[in-house]
Amino acid sequence: MMAPTLTTARLVLRPVQMADFSAYRDFMLSDRARYMGGPYDLAGAWGLFCHDAGLWALAGHGGLAVETKDGQTVGVVGINAGPLFPETELGWMLYEGHEGQGYATEAAGVLRDWAFGSRGLTTLVSYVFPANHASAAVARRLGARLDPQAARQADSEDDLVFRHVPGDGQP
């Protein structure tokens, strides 16, 4: 399927485009990518970028660029699957300077709602490095709960695994 465009009060989630690569690459080559298995080299960053864009055609879900309503790209959220992940995963990343405003929670929340709604998924997990307190806080704000029984990625046995289920985040 084609990547959808989703909107929230402050954000637009839209298909990833070539023009997004420079900011994505800068993130993946920087120390900010340490909680995502990085920093990566150029080819590694390109591979992940293409994976985010291409997974839609292969799996019916994938990555979306997150833009503010004034057109500034602040990060990427995505639903990942395949041999890279034991389970279908909801992930998020914010570029430098855009933290602390609730953007990750808002973007990941609307993508999760799309996944459980139109897309018909029934559960998602988020893998979080134990030291990544900001991301763990996002998962908790989304209403996800720690799932100590969930499978970990082979090289990441210490990951926290948060489980999302339909109804999370609703009053």
Binding site: V16, L48, C50, H51, A53, L55, G82, L84
Partner: peptide, 19 residues
């Protein structure tokens, strides 16, 4: 390995989506 080869498949799909 399986993981990198799968990424190669996804990269191919990504090239179509992006370019």
């Amino acid at each position: 390995d399986r993981r990198d080869a799968w990424e190669g498949v996804a990269i191919s799909a990504g090239l179509w989506a992006l370019r």
